[in-house]
C-alpha cells in the first residue's frame, strides 16, 4: 500500500503574492507529500471543488492581503457544503495575534505566520492526521 498524504495549497482572494505558498508547497513536496498547487485568485468554491476532486487530506490557504477574517469563513463554508467538513484547514500568511483564536473558532486547525520553519508545518500535518487513531 503506497498511501501518500495529499494536500491542497491555494491562494484565495485577490493578492498575487504567491512566493510564500510556493516555498511551502515545495517544502511539503520535499517532505514526501503530494501537493496539489492551484495558484492565485482562487474563489472559495474553486478551492472546495479542487479539494473534493483531488480527495485531499489537508487544505492549506495562503493569505497575505489581510482579508483572512473575510475569506476563511467562506472557504470553510464552501468546504462544508461540499461535504468536506472533516478536512483540516491550515492558514499561512500575515495574521495579527488577536485574530488567531477567532480563526481557531472558525475551524482553522493551524495558523503559521512569517518566519515559521517549514519543518514545523510538516510536523503539524503529520500530527493532525495521526490524531483520529
Amino acid at each position: 500500500m503506497d498511501r501518500k498524504i495529499r494536500i491542497l495549497v491555494a491562494k484565495p482572494g485577490l493578492d498575487g503574492h504567491d512566493r510564500g505558498a510556493k516555498v511551502v508547497a515545495r517544502a511539503l513536496r520535499d517532505a514526501g507529500f503530494e501537493v496539489i498547487y492551484t495558484g492565485i485568485r482562487q474563489t472559495p468554491d474553486m478551492i472546495a471543488e479542487a479539494a473534493l476532486q483531488e480527495d485531499v487530506d489537508v487544505v492549506g490557504l495562503s493569505i497575505l492581503s489581510g482579508a483572512h477574517m473575510a475569506l476563511v469563513p467562506k472557504v470553510r463554508e464552501a468546504l462544508t457544503t461540499a461535504g468536506l467538513e472533516d478536512v483540516p484547514l491550515l492558514l499561512g500568511g500575515i495574521v495579527p495575534d488577536e485574530d488567531i483564536p477567532v480563526l481557531h473558532q472558525m475551524g482553522v486547525r493551524g495558523v503559521f505566520g512569517p518566519g515559521t520553519p517549514t519543518g514545523v508545518i510538516v510536523d503539524f500535518i503529520h500530527n493532525e492526521l495521526r490524531e483520529p487513531l
Partner: peptide, 13 residues
C-alpha cells in the same frame, strides 16, 4: 523525497 508538486490545475482554472 517521494513527494510531488502537482501543478496542472493552475492552467485549468
Amino acid at each position: 523525497s517521494g513527494g510531488a508538486l502537482l501543478g496542472d490545475r493552475v492552467r485549468m482554472r
